[in-house]
């Protein structure tokens, strides 16, 4: 299970990183979202992977899962969700204001050079 989990996390992170380095705003936003998924999965696994463990206290529980990473990941998910929503709106605003979805608008920069 550990090998599968780490492969998935690593693959997600790699795809996220690749997309985040693209030149257009939409892939960048998707890439950052994937990266935050990978990070959430990674954070979830930091307490060790346990199946069938009680999260807090069970009457007849013999195995316990570390509850702290679960709380941390919940916080990280909420924050990541808000940030994604914000960056999507911002990307649309960039498209609307600049008339282009390039992260670095070349036309804008060449105009600045001329002036």
């Amino acid at each position: 299970m550990e090998a599968l989990f780490s492969t998935v996390t690593g693959f997600l992170a790699a795809s996220g990183l690749y997309l985040a380095l693209r030149g257009r705003t939409f892939p960048v936003v998707v890439g950052l979202t994937l990266l935050s998924y990978a990070v959430n999965l990674f954070l979830f696994s930091t307490g060790g992977l346990t199946t069938n463990g009680a999260a807090v206290v069970g009457d007849d529980a013999t195995r316990y899962a570390d509850p702290l990473p679960q709380a941390l990941v919940l916080t990280a998910i909420v924050i990541g969700f808000a940030m994604t929503a914000f960056s999507v709106i911002l990307a649309m605003r960039v498209r609307g204001d600049l008339g282009s979805d390039q992260v670095n608008d070349q036309r804008e920069e060449s105009k600045e050079e001329k002036s």
Binding site: L32, L35, S36, N40, M83, S87, V103
Partner: peptide
């Protein structure tokens, strides 16, 4: 808006690293 997008994207990546 342009400077803002750069700032936001960089800091989102920074937050991921922090986590």
């Amino acid at each position: 808006t342009q400077a803002g997008f750069h700032y936001v994207a960089l800091n989102l990546a920074g937050s991921a690293m922090f986590l």
